[in-house]
Amino acid sequence: MQPYLAAREELIASADPGTEAAEELCALMDEAVSALAEAASARAPKRVAIVALGGWGAGRLLPASDLDLLVLCDEPPVKVKPFVEAVLYPLWDAGLAIGHQVRTRKQQLTAVRADTDTLTATLNGRVVCGDAGWADAVLAECAADAAKRSREVLRALSARPRPGSPYLLEPDLKDGAGGQRDLDELAWTASVLTGRPRAGFEALVDEGIIDSAERARLDSAAEKIAAARWDLGRARPRAATLLALDAVEDVRINAALVQSALADAHHTLLTVRRRLAGGRAPDLRPLASPRLFELLERGEA
């Protein structure tokens, strides 16, 4: 783990903050976990895969991010314990915050149906190592199941709490209005509507929900928010989401640009919700997606 920790420390200290740095940190984590899994392969069951969930799965790992992983297996999880411990203990010993679950395919499908947070983490799922073809199929099955329940799932997503306003003097860049969770909800919505994991903003364009200019604003907002959160996580790991007044000096990107990004993300989310609900406003264009018309006609969006 020492080469990984050294490379991680160097990247956090020297990288230009933003989505590219977050992707590089993900790649380092992928390499470290893959190496640990390879070293523990003698203890592994015949069919197993390690899946990155949440922000790590989405390719958005920041200096203060927790790691969320899923071990998929085709045997009772208790039989996979030696392999899992061989992978996780070095990560824990290195001081990394790791959340993990060990599930079979059937257990994972049950879990995503029962809990929205588990579903959204899985919609960001990305196979790091192991039986990629099988694990990708499980992730696709979870997304397809969410699409069948689109009305229920979209309602649950819209009920997600988002404190504050994009215009607060001290905004929460993760859970607050316009923060990362609003961007996440747009990506989750794309996955629910298309039945594909990690569908992303481009799928919203393909579905006729947003246009290319709106997608560009979302990409720009995501870049600015990631840059601000990277610097906050580097300087203030215990308060890595709140852009407090006394933390502005720790963030290299202008605070006014961050606030503009929060507003763009939040207003785009509200616009998408109105479009999915069949609402109209002067700045909204008619929906063009046959899939959306089908959902609205059946009352499932």
Rank of each mutant, 00 (worst) to 15 (best):
P237C: 11
K174V: 09
P171D: 03
D211K: 01
D246I: 09
E85D: 08
S158Q: 14
L193G: 03
K79E: 15
R275S: 10
G279A: 13
L36Q: 05
E85G: 05
E20T: 08
G95F: 07
A44C: 13
E170D: 07
E207L: 15
W92N: 00
R43V: 08
A143S: 06
Y4W: 12
L36H: 12
A137K: 11
E170R: 01
I12K: 06
V205K: 10
L295E: 01
L11M: 04
M1Y: 14
V248L: 12
E185A: 12
H100I: 01
I98E: 02
G59P: 00
E294I: 08
A52N: 01
F201K: 00
D30K: 00
A35K: 09
C26E: 06
A256Y: 04
P171F: 01
R151L: 13
G179H: 07
A114K: 13
E85A: 04
G278H: 11
E185R: 09
P163E: 13
R229D: 04
E141R: 07
L61G: 05
Q259V: 03
P197N: 14
A86P: 00
D115P: 05
P45Y: 06
A177K: 02
Q180V: 03
V128N: 05
G133D: 05
E300K: 14
L173H: 04
A15F: 08
L168Y: 11
R198G: 13
L168W: 01
D68S: 06
E85Y: 01
A146Y: 03
E223P: 00
D16Q: 09
D264P: 01
P82E: 13
E170M: 13
P161L: 14
E38L: 11
T241W: 09
A221R: 04
A222C: 05
G18E: 10
P197Y: 02
G133H: 06
A114G: 09
V80T: 15
A261R: 08
E38R: 15
R285V: 06
I50H: 03
L91I: 00
P166L: 01
G176P: 03
V80A: 13
T122A: 03
T19R: 07
W134C: 04
E23M: 11
W188N: 01
L109C: 10
S65Y: 00
A226Y: 08
A265E: 03
L186E: 00
T120C: 09
L53A: 02
S34F: 05
W230Q: 02
R280C: 15
I50V: 15
D131Q: 13
A44Q: 11
S165K: 10
V248H: 07
G57V: 06
P161T: 03
W188T: 10
L276A: 00
A240R: 01
